[in-house]
Design a protein around this nucleic acid. Structure first.
Length: 587
DNA sequence: CATCCTTTGAAGAGG
DNA sequence: CCTCTTCAAAGGATG
């Protein structure tokens, strides 16, 4: 993971950033699997594409026409998105461009292209096109806001720091660039990038000198501020406002807080597009628009007496109460970040629209990611948390408790019984499409294990890459979450790892006593979850059945009883594609 | 319109 | 220390 360090001294993350998630040996194992998995995935995707959308392969360039010139102010997100979707489809038809990325998770790989995705003639470069859509989700950069921090101590010299650029070759962490890009994008539209600032090769603005600041979150507060993001058209309007801000502007609870470059960039990266997009000026420079803050309007605050509008521009001395007002969201964790990035891609790849289903896929993909890739997200998440803590020192996750009205009915013992009958009754079989499905050597557990020494740990001890840890590569482990209550899966020794609610239990081959499980799991591409009880932890089972139709036929297999399913899937595995099959054996 | 569903991860609460 | 619970995103489905 040397490369990670490549950035060089960044206090924020340099050292800890480099955390290895697994033992070398494991790594190898995993990588090997990954490779094969990728292959499978590719195949699957191809087939999926071919069958699902049978358009004759259209030229990729076709899409380009649709996408004339980036007109941030004019283009509506919707439109852009449509275009992209279409483009995506075409791409798929064309031959599955998605194959190209070795790492499925590489959302931002061709950043350089992204910087200037358009060819001289206005056509979108293939690469750009390929990755663009993957990236867009993250493009929600705030243009102005981001950098808004007039107070920011670090203006100019930091502004162009895009360390990543330094790496000629694509690094797994490349995606991080996105964040970096965010900062520069707004300020420097692709078309207008100054040569000297750009990396000749990548086209990305280069960093004059690396500073101690995190390379991944460089930013130039001052510079970017007011320019709308060039890619604004591509930015989702309402899409993931990770942290939304109050309409009138964001009142920063901690005005005194000085953002460093990394923070700023981070903020900018997460800044909701809709906040800034068309009206860059809307935000005052004084406000630090941190995405984490949600206006009461958006999220009801319990006490919500203050309306965003009320303190729109003048934060006034309301202070404490007020401070609390805005709903400060939790910082996203690695997986959430990953989801944000990849969701669009997944959605594009399949017809599924339900988030629940998508999330399942994403979860699998997550597991199939290489350590490096995951590391990237863990790192981002770590920074997010860091930034978040800096921005909202007093904030506690507990603050948000109860904000959500509903409580996931969590399960647990009792729920099993009642849920069973009640809502979970949807017998459904969910087939997860193409994702790599590598059996995720790292099961849910594994992923945690993978996680860099746990962010916190990483933070604390950067030096310790914590590779080793347990993540014993459980090659055979299933990614699925078997019903823990089910006797059959009792083997799940520690479902707890993550959360009971989510009950991500993983079965490791080693531990697993279930022959079935292991056997089926042995195949990388299959994952099967069975839920016997209706309790919420249904593994991959969706309580609400997802229409088969939504999935590609090739991916579908008839619902069947447990073993049948198993067999079936097993069979399918070899025959065709990996699909994860979930059955509900309940009855 | 509110909540569910689903995923992983982080963090808080409680034992 | 361990377990359990909540919340973070997202968007179709459901009540």
């Amino acid at each position: 993971m040397p490369q990670l360090n490549g950035g060089g001294g960044d206090e924020l993350g340099a050292n800890d950033e480099m955390i290895s998630f697994k033992d070398e040996g494991e790594q190898e194992e995993k990588t090997a699997e990954s490779v094969s998995a990728d292959r499978d995935l590719d195949d699957v995707k191809s087939s999926l594409v071919n069958e699902s959308e049978n358009n004759s392969s259209s030229s990729d360039s076709e899409t380009t026409e649709r996408r004339p010139q980036p007109r941030p102010d004019i283009e509506s997100y919707e439109k852009a998105r449509e275009c992209f979707n279409e483009a995506l489809r075409r791409q798929q038809d064309g031959g599955g461009l998605f194959k190209s990325p070795h790492y499925p998770g590489y959302p931002f790989l061709m950043i350089p292209d992204l910087a200037s995705p358009y060819l001289p003639n206005g056509a979108l470069s293939p690469t750009a096109r390929t990755y663009l859509q993957m990236k867009w989700p993250l493009l929600d950069m705030p243009s102005s806001a981001a950098l808004k921090d007039s107070r920011s101590p670090t203006p100019g010299h930091l502004s162009n720091k895009v360390p990543v650029v330094q790496h000629a070759h694509m690094h797994p962490l490349t995606p991080l660039i996105t964040y970096s890009n965010d900062h520069f994008s707004p300020a420097t539209p692709p078309a207008h990038l100054s040569p000297e600032l750009l990396d000749p090769k990548t086209g990305i603005p280069r960093t004059p000198h690396p500073s101690e600041l995190s390379p991944y979150y460089p930013l130039s507060p001052g510079t970017v501020g007011q320019i709308p993001h060039p890619l604004g058209w591509l930015v989702p309007q309402q899409a993931q406002p990770m942290y939304s801000i109050p309409p009138g502007g964001f009142r920063h609870p901690y005005p005194a807080l000085a953002m460093n470059a990394s923070m700023s960039s981070l903020v900018s990266s997460r800044f909701p597009p809709h906040v800034v997009p068309h009206h860059p000026h809307s935000l005052h420079q004084t406000g630090i628009p941190h995405p984490a803050i949600v206006s009461p309007a958006i999220k009801q605050e319990p006490n919500g007496e203050l309306s965003p509008a009320s303190h729109t521009k003048s934060p006034g001395p309301a202070k404490k109460e007020e401070e609390k007002k805005p709903h400060i969201k939790k910082p996203l964790n690695a997986f959430m970040l990953y989801m944000k990035e990849m969701r669009a891609k997944v959605v594009a790849e399949c017809t599924l629209k339900e988030s629940a289903a998508i999330n399942q896929i994403l979860g699998r993909r997550w597991h199939s990611l290489s350590r490096e890739e995951q590391a990237k997200y863990y790192e981002l998440a770590r920074k997010e948390r860091q930034l978040h803590s800096q921005l909202y020192p007093g904030w506690s996750a507990r603050d948000n408790y109860g904000k959500r009205k509903k409580r996931k009915r969590d399960n647990k013992a009792e729920s099993a019984a009642e849920d069973y009958s009640a809502r979970n009754k949807k017998p459904c079989v969910q087939y997860l499409p193409q994702e790599k499905m590598i059996d995720s050597p790292a099961s849910s557990h594994g992923s945690m294990l993978d996680s860099p020494a746990t962010p916190s740990a990483a933070l604390a001890s950067p030096a310790a890459p914590a590779p080793t840890h347990s993540e014993q590569a459980q090659p055979l482990s299933l990614t699925t979450k078997p019903e823990r209550h089910h006797p059959h899966f009792s083997l799940i020794s520690k479902p707890s790892s993550s959360s009971s609610s989510s009950s991500s239990a993983s079965i490791s081959s080693s531990s697993s006593s279930s022959s079935f499980t292991s056997s089926s799991s042995s195949h990388p591409s299959i994952s099967l979850a069975i839920s016997s009880s209706g309790s919420q932890s249904t593994g991959h089972l969706l309580s609400r059945p997802i229409p088969f139709a939504s999935l590609h036929p090739s991916l579908l297999s008839p619902p069947s009883p447990f073993h049948q399913a198993a067999l079936h899937s097993h069979h399918a595995l070899f025959q065709t594609q990996p699909l994860s099959l979930v059955t509900k054996s309940a009855d």
